[in-house]
Design a protein around this nucleic acid. Structure first.
Lengths: 340, 340
DNA sequence: CTGAAAGCGCTTACAG
DNA sequence: CTGAAAGCGCTTACAG
């Protein structure tokens, strides 16, 4: 048998011969209430182990103090650090977080947005799935509820965006390769033009241009699913090119690790023959040998910053804000590009 | 300016010249309501894009349809797969999940339990922090709210436990080492007697006993924090033993990878000189070379099963259930123990 | 300084 | 089959 009785304001009021209003005010430290009553009520509430029903409180004040978070996939190291940042900051600001996963399916993403709205979350944090085509519904949602996009964003949706300095990060990474003496740098990016992929590609182009290196079409490779397996596969393609590149920049660590695996199998020397550069600073990047040079993406900070802006917008009432905040990254140089 | 007007039952009722009760019943497919009215109301609701306020619904029915989940750390591959399982099953059952992280701090864990209760979650899923000493408060919480412990559990807390077959899994893993001809098998476990560590240790002992191998105290190593770094450190200690073992079973993959790193640096041949065996089947286990033999822990299944039992308990009203469900694991044999 | 009353959006026992 | 009313636990404008 489970104990059911929960103590409510009414119980306290009856016991103390006070009105519910007075008890409520005393507990909420309202201004015009006598010190004596306040003291009396508070100590009695404590004694009775009273806790306010947050659900009722939220219902009454039309604020749930819940934030919704939708990410494409949780079991991804970077994403999990983003979530950690979100939870931590949310807790500090007094919000709970309902977490959900769109599994990279746009239809599921829409369903979740709908569900979150229906549930009455005070604000929504969204990292878009790949192939988010129909942004109309998302824009419509943003008109009714504070929305912040993070990491995986779209310029077509006007709201606050929290991202990393994608282009600059890629630029610096590729420039690092150039500084180590590499001249024929290949890139592996996504076929689908996701925001992240495109920005990193831009950074790559910018670095080549700045250093007057030619842009060679055969060095620009794309794959649908930017994974370890495809990295392994594309590595063969890279090696079969008429003129072999002397460095490969892949826009994810997973893919870079796939490339390294194939190169090692075929006895290609990394970085002397071909250097490899990733993006994310995943846990794997220090497990693979040689250790991977990569761009560190501060997930916690992205998560925490998103909450900060979202809460600001929630408190800001009707004001819809749209600003883009870029979180700084930094390059972590390791063995896979190290000049000896 | 954000659009604020939300359509409520009252709006629909006024527009249709019906009572709120009737509209509510029509929408909820109540039995005694005329087909005509039902049709009328439903189509109008659809037209007006009405969605019920779930918060109000929950408030009224004293059911929030929210489950609380507390885990020690999210950014851990295994844990993130557990969360995926939880979210998926919860969604199917019509529950939302508030996720939170105790950061392995017992005080924080207690705070979170308190918060979840106060918030009125319908049930609580809890994976304990290491060093959970004071179980009184947790037991007290379980008296008021359905509670299911998962993965990191304690026998001192009477409620449903969803775990893997820890002892059996470790037994089979160590037996596999024995089958490959290893006779002097070391183990690295936790100093702190966590449930998981102790059960795996038991499995280790059981396998040695079954095969009449002596239990050698010097082969039983412990560390506070069972991490990659400590694996690296303990590998030196293992190599300095008077009689070197020919296999090492570490109770986590991370630690095993640390051991492998040190062994490789010192040119120890794996598995010929010393085999290495992990536990978890983390992503890293296939990145390290040689690839790690390990026990696959089906995180998704653990998560999903926990929700299944929790929801059952929620629907079961006052009945407090305490059963232990063991999820089957299986050994994944890879290079680090492969007999040539 | 305190209390009675209304109301947040819904459901449901009661009456008809 | 439909409606009026009560109530879930709280807060707050209004009166005194």
């Amino acid at each position: 048998m489970r104990k059911k009785t929960t103590i409510t304001l009414k119980h306290l009021a009856e016991d103390l011969n006070l009105s519910v209003s007075t008890v409520s005010r005393a507990l909420n430290n309202h201004q015009d209430i006598s010190a004596d009553t306040k003291e009396l009520v508070c100590s009695y509430a404590k004694k009775m182990n009273y806790f306010p029903n947050l659900f009722a409180k939220g219902f009454r004040s039309q604020k749930t103090h819940i934030i919704g978070l939708i990410v494409p996939q949780i079991s991804n190291y970077f994403t999990s650090t983003v979530i950690e940042g979100v939870l931590q900051e949310a807790e500090e600001k007094g919000y709970r977080v309902i977490v959900s996963e769109s599994k990279n399916r746009p239809d599921k993403q829409e369903e979740l947005i709908q569900m979150m709205r229906q549930f009455g979350v005070d604000g929504l944090l969204l990292s878009l799935t790949r192939k988010t085509k129909n942004v109309q519904n998302i824009i419509a949602a943003a008109e009714r509820i504070p929305l912040v996009l993070l990491d995986k964003v779209s310029n077509k949706i006007p709201c606050t965006h929290i991202i990393i300095n994608e282009e600059q990060a890629a630029f610096e990474a590729v420039e690092h390769l150039i500084h180590t003496g590499k001249k024929n740098i290949a890139i592996i990016k996504e076929t689908e033009k996701s925001f992240n992929s495109e920005m990193r590609y831009r950074g790559y182009l910018k670095a080549l241009k700045k250093h007057n290196l030619p842009i060679d079409e055969q060095y620009i490779l794309s794959t649908e699913d930017i994974s370890l397996q495809h990295g392994q596969r594309l590595a063969y393609q890279i090696l079969s090119l008429q003129k072999r590149p002397d460095a490969v920049f892949t826009i994810t660590d997973d893919c870079a690790i796939g490339v390294i695996k194939t190169f090692k199998k075929l006895q290609i020397k990394i970085p002397d023959d071909i250097a490899v550069l990733g993006f994310s600073n995943s846990l794997n990047s220090t497990i693979i040998s040689p250790k991977l040079t990569t761009v560190d993406q501060p997930g916690q900070k992205i998560g925490a910053t998103s909450v900060k802006y979202l809460v600001e917008e929630i408190n800001n009432e009707n004001q819809v804000i749209s600003k883009t905040v870029e979180i700084k990254t930094h390059l972590v140089v390791r063995e896979s590009t190290l000049k000896l």
